[in-house]
């Protein structure tokens, strides 16, 4: 029981850093390249601790991200929920993948999330970008995934004992 609450704390604190990286101001040219930190963190934790970090956690994390970005409430909650659902459904297979294959999965999840984000904005009469530049975030996320994976795995092994 103690390790259960400890793991929840570690995940929450790590998520704080994901939020930080998601809102820290970047120069104009780098905006499209900002990796989807919250998505990758939720992906890792649902894959590593599927019985502790579930759909509700991912959804709540997305809701906070919505408020943080000042956007429409529920958009990031929905996309992170879908990420968590896909990950939870395949978590045993995903764990067996090499890091390169996992990068591919991250790329796929990013594309799905960005497309869904775009459609939800169109449905809700919000401003959408005219260029397809925002899909670049999927590339940078996939590129950064192996390093983030090692970092988060170190964090999990160091602090959370099964």
């Amino acid at each position: 029981m103690k390790s259960r609450s400890a793991s929840l704390w570690i995940v929450t604190i790590s998520l704080f850093f994901a939020y930080l990286l998601a809102v820290v101001p970047l120069p104009e040219w780098a905006m499209d390249w900002r990796p989807m930190w919250a998505l990758m963190f939720v992906f890792y934790w649902t894959m590593a601790l599927p019985y502790r970090i579930g759909l509700g956690f991912a959804w709540a994390a997305g809701l906070v991200l919505d408020v943080l970005e000042g956007g429409l409430l529920g958009v990031n909650a929905l996309t992170l929920l879908i990420v968590a659902y896909i990950t939870l459904s395949f978590h045993q297979r995903l764990r067996m993948y090499t890091q390169l294959q996992q990068s591919g999965v991250v790329f796929f999840l990013c594309i799905v999330t960005l497309a869904l984000n775009h459609w939800l904005k169109v449905i809700n009469d919000q401003l959408v970008s005219e260029s397809w530049g925002f899909f670049l975030a999927a590339l940078s996320s996939a590129a950064i995934w192996p390093a983030l994976f090692l970092l988060l795995r170190g964090l999990r092994r160091g602090f959370i004992n099964h």
Binding site: L55, L63, G74, V75, A77, L78, L81, S89, L120, N124
Partner: peptide, 20 residues
């Protein structure tokens, strides 16, 4: 898992609608 997912999807949709 599926039940919970569907519930939360509906909740998100409601939030988006209500927020607007």
């Amino acid at each position: 898992l599926e039940y919970r997912a569907v519930t939360l999807v509906l909740l998100s949709a409601f939030l988006m609608f209500a927020d607007r």
